[in-house]
């Protein structure tokens, strides 16, 4: 055998992930490119800061690469990946206790970076969990089961949070 084959772009996630687990960086990068666009949009809307969003994507994909040996195919790859990305974003949103003293000013999202339209303000006012669930449903198109799996919460909790988020945002926008 000579060169490894470049993975076809229409390869299923799980096969690419299997290749990546074997050390195939090209396969992993194919996955990164497949999810980078949605990941950036999701993280930007969640964090309301382009710079933090980019950092979250970098951290998330890096953690995904390093965590690949732990991907056992129990869930869909994308569910597994979104879980990592949400955690990466939350890590940036919530400074670690020991770093609070140093980061208390810079950790606050700079609101003027994102256009402050009504939807943005409304989403910002939602509690964290409701915001995550709503964005995963509306922005990423995940169904409730996938959202529950990605966030590590129950189906009913995901359903309730989504319902509350929609109702609250509807009130804020009318």
């Amino acid at each position: 055998m000579t060169n490894p084959l470049p993975p076809p772009s229409d390869f299923p996630d799980e096969l690419l992930a299997g290749r990546a687990q074997g050390g195939d960086r090209t396969a992993f990068e194919t996955l990164v490119l497949r999810y980078l666009g949605p990941a950036r949009a999701f993280c930007t809307k969640l964090l309301r800061d382009q710079v933090l969003a980019e950092d979250a994507c970098q951290d998330g994909f890096l953690k995904a690469w390093r965590g690949l040996p732990g991907f056992r195919g129990e869930a869909k790859f994308r569910t597994w990946l979104w879980r990592i990305l949400v955690n990466a974003a939350n890590d940036l949103r919530k400074p670690k206790p020991e770093a609070i003293g140093e980061r208390e000013f810079e950790a606050v999202p700079e609101r003027d970076v994102v256009a402050e339209d009504a939807v943005a303000r409304g989403v910002a006012e939602l509690p964290d969990r409701q915001r995550e669930v709503l964005l995963m449903r509306a922005e990423l198109g995940l169904d409730l089961e996938e959202i529950a799996a990605a966030l590590g919460i129950t189906y009913d909790a995901a359903k309730a949070n989504l319902s509350l988020a929609r109702k609250k945002l509807r009130e804020l926008l009318t």
């Binding site: 950036r40 949009a41 809307k45 382009q50 969003a53 994507c57 939807v119 989403v123 964005l135 922005e139």
Partner: peptide, 9 residues
């Protein structure tokens, strides 16, 4: 929410 287009990285 989906149509909201913030400036991306």
């Amino acid at each position: 929410v989906r149509d909201w287009q913030p400036a991306l990285p």
